[in-house]
């Protein structure tokens, strides 16, 4: 897994992608996320990219056009309430996670989708500032990712 991460870091060539690849790790079956159905503290605690990389282990995410953001604004006036919806058209989607790059903790929410439930979830999140929003989808043990930039006029963290 360690070697995989290094490779990912190399090919990623940037911090952003490296984080994504690392973040993808927790979505894999058998990772900390799947253990005991508990709350994955390490993943949610990650405050910096480096921490996130450590906490989530390695993995490989492939960009996908089959993931779309629904009812997600390009510009959010109020960062305290930003609607984010994720729709995955990938068959056998098992989980969907929402990550916000510039928040104090990257991971905002993750959803487990049992069979019979459609791979579409929407919720509202807080965003400290304009940032890329990532949707990670785990389907058949493979991790897919899509991103969208959301501009925030008024931040929703701190204050």
């Amino acid at each position: 897994m360690d070697a995989g991460r290094r490779k990912a870091l190399k090919t990623g060539g940037g911090v952003t992608l490296a984080t994504l690849l690392a973040a993808a790790g927790w979505l894999e079956p058998g990772s900390a996320h799947a253990q005991a159905g508990g709350w994955n503290k390490a993943a949610f605690d990650a405050k910096t990219l480096d921490e996130a990389v450590k906490a989530m282990g390695g993995g490989a995410a492939t960009p996908s056009n089959a993931i779309t953001f629904v009812s997600t604004p390009d510009i959010a006036e109020n960062g305290a309430v930003v609607p984010i919806g994720v729709l995955s058209s990938i068959p056998n989607t098992r989980s969907i996670a929402i990550l916000i790059e510039k928040n104090p903790s990257l991971l905002a929410a993750s959803f487990d989708i049992p069979p019979g439930t459609e791979a579409v979830v929407s919720t509202r999140v807080k965003m400290g500032q304009s940032s890329m929003v990532y949707a990670l989808v785990n389907a058949d043990g493979k991790v897919h990712v899509a991103s969208k930039e959301v501009k925030v006029t008024l931040g929703g963290c701190g204050g």
Partner: peptide
């Protein structure tokens, strides 16, 4: 039919929708 783990980044008075 759905289980979720949330962090503090989810907005106050959270909204959730699924099918």
């Amino acid at each position: 039919v759905l289980s979720a783990q949330w962090g503090p980044a989810v907005a106050k008075n959270p909204f959730l929708s699924f099918k």
